[in-house]
């Protein structure tokens, strides 16, 4: 049994956290080969080789893989698929774009957001915004799936896997990259941050979101938002924590002005310590918070920022 794992490479850099968590999820299934693809990918491949449990690294360095386009990446994975029983990736937006395409090209069903690997055919995954956990058994010859990284610890380092060039696949040439608008930020990345401070509809406006950001900066935390805050235009969508956004599991999660809709809880309830600050003492967020403070956030949050 062998596993092909698509490493998360952005602008030539490996997301070690996401990739190492996915390695840990799949390493029981067989020898793990990590594929690093990008317009520059050699450095990422060197980093992937150091992850404990990786047997081999394949590198596909070419401009066609440089902008996260699904069609060339899927074509590459399909061309390599013959040697593997399992084809997996951390469930990032790139992988969610690419992996279902790979599965359909192989005529197999994709298994999205795997939260536990039971055996070579059987997987657990959350459905209904995390309100239910389904165990599914795949009848397909190859299993194509994405891994919910928040459900797994990262594999350690200390590996020294050999790195080889992958044979490139033809570029279907169906789409072209135009531009990226990457939010400039010195803050940690949301899904791998050790601390997250999130604001909800209670924050009231985009301007007032600054008090959330100030607390986050004091804590060295990433900033998150509820779907209600994103819908209301207070925060950008890539801050969204929840079933339709990002799933996080930091050491400390501070929910400010967030009522605790089910779809939000699905994205953060695996956090180690949860703090909720909300003026409504009936808010459902208090049912899962380790420490709840019933208070006006506009007084409590600046005070907390000052006292930390």
């Amino acid at each position: 049994m062998a596993v092909l794992l698509l490493g998360e490479v952005t602008n030539g850099e490996l997301s070690v956290d996401a990739t190492a968590k996915a390695v840990n999820a799949v390493k029981g299934l067989g020898d793990v080969t990590v594929l690093c693809a990008g317009s520059s990918a050699k450095a990422a491949a060197e980093d992937a080789a150091k992850i404990a449990g990786v047997a081999k690294v394949l590198v596909a360095e070419d401009a066609r893989y440089g902008h996260r386009l699904a069609e060339p990446a899927a074509a590459l994975l399909v061309s390599l698929a013959g040697d593997y029983d399992h084809i997996a990736a951390p469930a990032t937006t790139d992988a969610k774009n690419i992996m279902p395409r790979v599965a359909a090209l192989l005529d197999v069903m994709v298994i999205s957001d795997v939260s536990a690997v039971i055996d070579a055919e059987t997987f657990e995954r959350p459905v209904y915004a995390g309100n239910a956990i389904q165990t599914v058994k795949s009848k397909d010859a190859k299993k194509v799936f994405t891994v919910r990284t928040a459900s797994f610890d990262a594999a350690g380092d200390g590996g020294s896997a050999p790195v080889a060039d992958a044979t490139l696949a033809d570029d279907p040439g169906l789409s072209t990259w135009v531009s990226d608008q990457v939010a400039e930020s010195d803050r940690p990345e949301l899904t791998s941050a050790g601390r997250v401070v999130s604001g909800g509809r209670g924050v009231g406006s985009k301007e007032q979101f600054e008090i959330i950001e100030a607390l986050a900066d004091k804590l060295g935390a990433a900033v998150g938002a509820s779907r209600a805050a994103v819908d209301s235009g207070y925060a950008p969508n890539d801050w969204q924590v929840g079933q339709t956004g990002k799933v996080v599991a930091p050491e400390l999660y501070v929910a400010v002005g967030i009522s605790g809709a089910i779809q939000h809880l699905a994205g953060m309830k695996d956090s180690k310590v949860i703090v909720a600050i909300n003026k409504d003492e009936e808010a459902p967020i208090f049912q899962i918070a380790d420490y709840g403070l019933v208070a006006d956030l506009f007084q409590a949050v600046p005070e907390l920022t000052q006292k930390l």
Partner: peptide, 13 residues
């Protein structure tokens, strides 16, 4: 497109 870290614009036929 909404992607991790921000937005990406692509052109498709």
């Amino acid at each position: 497109r909404e992607v991790d870290g921000g937005l990406q614009t692509i052109e498709v036929k």
